[in-house]
Design a protein around this nucleic acid. Structure first.
Length: 595
RNA sequence: GGGGCUGUAGUAGAGUCGGUUACAACGCCGGCCUGUCACGCCGGAGGUCGCGGGUUCAAGUCCCGUCAGCCCCGCCA
């Protein structure tokens, strides 16, 4: 039989009890981390979200509590009153924040018992993730997840305070909204009162925040759930949280500068790190040239070097052919890596194949020159030129990639990131930001045989590139920007189109006809024609930001109730089948399972 | 849609070349213990080797299929 809480009031949280409270009578409540029964003395480590404190139960002081303590097991819920006292000489535990003190218990309640947990709730036990997810409420008791979520709260609070100070107003936008054809797959919600019609859950509040600018709110933000029905990754969940912002009467630099301030404030308040402002910037083109990707990890060099011209005339057919067919030959110099084993080189080759590369050429630079399967194809003059271009020193490992520009950049760029990790150059406590700007506006989609928007269809072209929309739309650049942190895209945004005519032209370029545009985005076009101010914005992925701030390897470790890779919830067992009655009301009939 | 890794007491693991009754640790249960703190000592219980099929005299081990979790490619404006 459990004790009743009655009129007991907690005075402190367990983790708060330190030496300056010695002599005070306190009352704590929490979960039993551990009981150490010495037959006489019993010690209980009591845990709450702030930490652990030791309760000392002496049969000579309070026989009743001591007797109760004998039946206590892990995870029982306990309330205890007593005096904070200094631990006896030689029994201080320097590993604990509360290790100088203990509570001499004079009265104790067992508020609830507990089954034996399926896994130990300590910091030492590693548990398979499916078990952790099934018993998420227990996993969340462990300090690692508690700290992550408490830090997440602190970040959200800091963001709200900062944006409020900068004149932003938080406005909620609909969760039941309209499906948009561009972009990710929508989560759909059938409408009962409009049978046969569907809402979509928002991939982002994009259109609504633009409407708020038209409405004159001037600066908007929202910490908001967004939904994308796409496959999951270590850093991707089907529902995720964005810090979504939009500003009126601003240029790109205005947006960048306000947001840099926010990010710096977050890093200072959350983890005490000073971020140097302004943050560095790279154009998209420069990022691709030097790093092969649009989200470069700036914690290390290992830059990609274009050697297409140097090898175009060489006897090495693989390189020469690629050069002759508008391909790209690029190399990177892994300093001091000539010691790599055959196995390691094979692994690197396997790695680039994931990204569609056919192979990877390597060169170990030795005292006697190139040790490499491809050395024999080059003349001494070519070797000299390559060595000079790549700054090759004895002991270096040169890696070459020849392919279409798309594959060569991506494969070698990813290899660069992989090497950075492998060589220990990607220190988690080193935070390197970079803005990527001047993205292309459009990208040709082979499958759909049309242009698609690189960012989204509401992104404004660069002023000076607007004429290109009629001549060479593929060359037009966008007023778009991404914030990249340690190789991870943590935010992205753009200056939007506020001119109805330009927006119509944009839809045209995307192969969205007039009628379709009216049907899908008529309300936006209408709004733009009623005095839309110049505006732009950005959205940050709060989950990814939290991953970096906490050092988590998985997005699931910064979300209270995450989904598995198959987008299911092992705790609640969602998604589940629903009653036939519910389906009938919605006018939905399921295809039989045989088909 | 595709590639890869993992799956053995409650937990996390070992299990050799296919061969006796599947191991030790932590946890759990019982007993002892008045200064421990991942307490200690003694004793005990606990197994559909993910699931299904196959090969074999014999399968945790080999083969095929399947399920689940994870990582990746595609996908994610």
């Amino acid at each position: 039989m459990n004790d009743k809480l009655g009129d007991w009031k907690r005075t402190h949280r367990c983790g708060e009890l330190t030496a300056d409270l010695i002599g005070q009578d306190v009352c704590v409540m929490g979960w039993v981390q551990r009981r150490r029964d010495h037959g006489g003395l019993i010690f209980i480590d009591l845990r709450d979200r702030e930490g652990i404190v030791q309760l000392a139960l002496d049969p000579d002081r309070d026989a009743e509590s001591h007797k109760k303590a004998e039946q206590i097991r892990n995870e029982f819920v306990v309330a205890a009153r007593g005096k904070v006292s200094a631990r006896p000489e030689g029994t201080v535990n320097p590993k604990m924040k509360t290790g100088e003190v203990e509570i001499e218990i004079s009265e104790m309640l067992i508020l609830n018992s507990s089954e034996t947990p399926p896994f130990m709730l300590d910091e030492y036990t590693e548990v398979a993730e499916n078990i952790r997810l099934k018993y998420r409420f227990l996993d969340l008791r462990r300090p690692a997840l508690q700290n992550n979520l408490m830090l997440r709260h602190l970040v959200a609070k800091t963001v709200r305070n900062y944006l409020d100070g900068e004149g932003f107003i938080e406005v909620e936008t609909p969760v039941l909204t309209k499906s948009t054809p561009e972009g990710a797959r929508d989560y759909l919600v059938p409408s009962r009162v409009n049978v046969g019609k569907f809402y979509a859950l928002p991939q982002s509040p994009q259109l609504f925040k633009q409407l708020l600018m038209v409405a004159g709110f001037d600066r908007y933000f929202q910490i908001v759930k967004c939904f994308r029905d796409e496959d999951l990754r270590a850093d991707r969940q089907p529902e995720f949280t964005q810090i979504d912002c939009e500003l009126s009467f601003v240029s790109r630099d205005d947006v960048v500068s306000v947001m840099e301030g926010m990010v710096a404030k977050v890093f200072k308040d959350a983890i005490g790190v000073d971020v140097a402002l302004p943050m560095p910037r790279l154009t998209y083109q420069e990022a691709m040239d030097r790093f092969g990707v649009d989200n470069p990890d700036m914690r290390f060099d290992l830059e990609l070097i274009n050697i297409t011209d140097l090898v175009a005339g060489s006897q090495f057919k693989v390189f020469a052919d690629v050069a002759a067919n508008d391909g790209l030959v690029k190399a990177l110099n892994a300093k001091g890596c000539a010691t790599f084993s055959r196995k390691e080189l094979d692994d690197l080759t396997e790695f680039v194949k994931i990204y569609g590369a056919k192979g990877l050429a390597w060169v170990k630079v030795t005292e006697d020159g190139w040790q490499s399967p491809i050395a024999k194809f080059f003349t001494p003059a070519e070797l000299e030129a390559l060595n000079a271009k790549l700054d090759a020193q004895v002991g270096d490992l040169l890696l070459f990639m020849a392919d279409t520009p798309k594959v060569a950049n991506e494969a070698l760029g990813r290899l660069r990131g992989h090497l950075g990790q492998k060589l220990g150059l990607a220190d988690k406590s080193n935070y390197k930001f970079v803005w990527i700007t001047d993205f292309p506006l459009l990208e040709w989609d082979e499958e759909e045989n049309r242009h698609v928007a690189v960012h989204h269809p509401f992104t404004s072209p660069m002023e000076e590139d607007i004429p290109l929309l009629d001549s060479e739309p593929g060359k037009a650049r966008a007023q778009a920007y991404d914030l990249v942190l340690n190789g991870s895209e943590v935010g992205g945004g753009s200056i939007r189109i506020h001119d109805q005519a330009v927006q119509s032209r944009m839809f045209e370029l995307l192969g969205i006809g007039n009628e379709e545009a009216r049907e899908k985005f008529g309300f936006l076009l209408d709004a733009l024609s009623f005095g839309a101010p110049p505006h732009g914005g950005i959205a940050f992925g709060l989950d990814r930001l939290m991953m970096i701030l906490t050092g988590a390897d998985s997005i699931r470790d910064v979300i209270a109730f995450p989904k598995t890779q198959k987008a299911t919830c092992l705790l609640s067992d969602a998604p589940n089948e629903v009653a036939e009655k519910q389906l009938r009301e919605l006018g939905i009939r399921l295809r039989s399972k045989q088909n």
